[in-house]
Amino acid sequence: MPGMDLEETLLPGVGVRYELKTRAGETLGIVVQREGGAEIAVYDRRDPDRARGVLRLTPEEADALAEVLGAPRLTQRFADLSREVPGLQSARFPVGPGSPFDGRTLGDTRARTLTGCSVVAIVRDADVVPSPTPGDRLQAGDVLVAIGSAAGLEQLDRRLSGQV
């Protein structure tokens, strides 16, 4: 995202804080907690180190907000892609804690070879790894975004959850 000032700070034991300077000149603080909850804050004008007016979100609320702001755009992009190429679909596959690929590389899934699907991104907590390479390691909690045929995606789903 060019020209945007998004600063990331690790909060040990709590999560990650993002600081976004908006073009309108405001600073937005977002604390994404490890357990999935979030706090959104604006900073005091007189004391710029102090968060004032903190919005507390439960994990469900944070998810809902993320959905509202983020997901449609992502889906939109894939929907455009699917429209351009008939027969192509996209899907998201979570890597569960019991998945056989927890801790193994993307290459180990052999998704392309066995199912014909392409994994186009790995979503890990708040991060997105676009165009992942076969050497990228998967962890429980990751979500793989894949495109392929309907049958291929179904096959990939079974493979990732360890049914095949």
Binding site: T9, G13, V31, E39, P48, D49
Partner: peptide, 17 residues
Amino acid sequence: LGRLANRETPAVLSVLV
């Protein structure tokens, strides 16, 4: 106290770690 987003908080948490 709603201080998680404060700018001094990373330093505080790091001292604890």
